[in-house]
Design a protein around this nucleic acid. Structure first.
Lengths: 348, 348
DNA sequence: TTGAAAGCGCTAACAG
DNA sequence: CTGTTAGCGCTTTCAA
């Protein structure tokens, strides 16, 4: 019991978890560590015989290389960080999905982060990112402070900005002009004979840009200035209803609404329905995003479609090119957008 | 030009990007590396004077510790991997959000992965995960093959399974019983006087468990066997409409539908509306998930609410406890659920 | 095609 | 409170 020669072993956590290393494999296969390394990374440099032997041992031991160690020496983490404002906004899902797949195919992994918080957290966030030494960062129109931008540039990590357009990005860019989206929707509604236009919109920077284009276009076309209902954050279905309700209660009737997202459009539709206003008879609605349900809603929703999957693939391409030291042929890509005409604006 | 003594330097990529290391900081601050390390990780162990000096140098140089290096030595990556079936299913968003925040607070970062693919990719996925040596894995009722489960157990990484209930999990669990969800919804609808029940449901394992509970309960209550419409994957709004349409066209009328998600419920609602069937008058609808729009839909949607945020916080708690070698007091947690009664079932 | 040596950037384990 | 020593697991030279 109290034998001093055999003290009870203190219950240590994970004394040697997953301790199978490249060393163990090398020993069992009767080769050197570096040969094992080559067998994993560049098998064409290893003879058939040793390759077979090594692979057998790897399977037997369940060896999985430690990428932290590899990344440390090679200075390549094979990690790409993507920052989206929020996961609840379905608009970014296809982009993230495509990004994941495209990177995976090339041997990279995606880390996903949410940036839709206060500026105070941005610093923490950036530190977390840079600390992991990703081979690239995909930004979704974020980074509020100038300070953060500088820091990111200083880190030397390749950056792709997306979902927005700027002729002079930090580094690379795949996006489209929100200004032009606003203009095009306004022109379209005017052509449909709508004159009393309104916006029901969230308050993020890109939505504001769409608003500006919309309002400017209305002025140019000689329409009455569009009325704007800002949605209290977050821009949920419920808040959209509230915002539109306030607009309807406060002023003259309107005959068309441009919404900052398809979800908002759904809220607007429900509010109109509950007031007995017909869509598209009395009021036309245009959404933004072309989410899965836009086409099958009742009535189906006219909206702006962005090819988010293509965006993701292009961004992945750019990052990988830069990470592998290749020359990037076209670092700034305008993806464009498409106005999809459906029932909510009077039939397509 | 052809001076052999000065060959043109090949244009190398990132020759020394972000090369400021703990070494540089130590030198400039006139202390040893380990003191800098302590200043960053356990500042209470460093004197005020040196701390101030070090912090100044860190700011000046823009030093960000390389977590790959730290993780290598300490065998703690401070990385937690979360696997969700898909990002498009909004049900998991609050969980992911809460997980992110709770982990961040404790100095961990979340890596998000999507698992909703074919089994063939599961192996790749697991390899990618284990390769990064996360301190924990949060699983969302996934991992199709028995092989994968074994491999995960063998890796020794703490695992929390979520969004499901099993008395004998791999390691730890935070979830609820889908069987009981099905039972409760069925009982509820029966109590409302509904007798001709139907299911419109996706085909994932958990939805199937809800179906089983629902069907079993109906039998027990002496109701006619519920009719089941399976939705072609993916379970979108449009596919839900198609599935319900087929059901309505093929057989006798029904007076209540239990849907496998709120999105499906929206599709079901739209299909009923377009056929002039009133909700809840002719048909009652119950969803699953209590997404943001459920409460503000028209009519508002009765549904099953899961406290996804709480689930995320609890999972984070468990992971961190295990990662830090503390004893886990309650490794299996039944979170429960709540039936939220709204207009789509005849008023709450 | 293979191997030996060296070290990526950091931190545990001891001493002082 | 501070420093020294020794490596984490892997890959990049370089040489055979």
């Amino acid at each position: 019991m109290s034998d001093p020669a055999s003290p009870p072993a203190p219950p240590r956590r994970r004394p040697d978890r997953s301790s199978v290393t490249i060393c163990d494999v090398a020993r069992l296969a009767g080769v050197s560590m570096i040969t094992v390394s080559r067998a994993m990374n560049t098998p064409e440099q290893v003879s058939e015989a040793k390759l077979a032997k090594i692979r057998a041992v790897v399977d037997q031991l369940g060896y999985v290389p430690n990428r932290m160690a590899g990344g440390l020496k090679s200075a390549r983490s094979r990690l790409v960080m993507a920052l989206v404002p929020s996961l609840s906004s379905q608009v970014f899902t296809p982009t993230v999905q495509a990004l994941t797949e495209a990177l995976e195919q090339r041997g990279y992994h995606l880390m996903l982060g949410q940036s839709g918080y206060e500026d105070s957290r941005e610093d923490h966030m950036l530190e977390a990112i840079i600390g992991r030494r990703p081979d690239g960062i995909v930004l979704t129109g974020v980074l509020h402070s100038q300070e953060s931008r500088k820091r990111l540039i200083a880190s030397g990590i390749p950056v792709v900005e997306t979902w927005d357009y700027s002729p002079s990005p930090i580094d690379m860019l795949v996006g489209f002009s929100h200004d032009r989206v606003g203009e095009e929707v306004c022109t379209f509604l005017a052509r449909q004979g709508r004159r009393h236009l309104a916006l029901v919109t969230g308050s993020d920077a890109r939505a504001m840009r769409r608003r500006d284009g919309f309002v400017r276009s209305a002025a140019r076309l000689g329409l009455p200035p569009p009325r704007v209902a800002m949605i209290a954050a977050p821009a949920t279905h419920a808040n959209a209803r509230v915002a539109l309700a306030a607009l309807l209660d406060a002023g003259p009737p309107l005959d068309a609404v441009f919404c900052s997202s398809d979800l908002v459009a759904l809220g607007v539709l429900n509010e109109l329905q509950s007031r007995g206003l017909s869509v598209p008879g009395a009021v036309a609605i245009v959404g933004f995003g072309d989410l899965a349900y836009a086409a099958s809603m009742h009535p189906s929703l006219s909206t702006i479609r962005i090819d988010g999957a293509r965006l993701g693939r292009l961004a992945a391409e750019l990052i990988v090119q830069r990470a592998e030291g290749r020359e990037v042929d076209e670092p700034v890509i305008d993806l464009g957008f498409e106005l999809v005409e459906r029932d909510s604006t009077g039939g397509g």
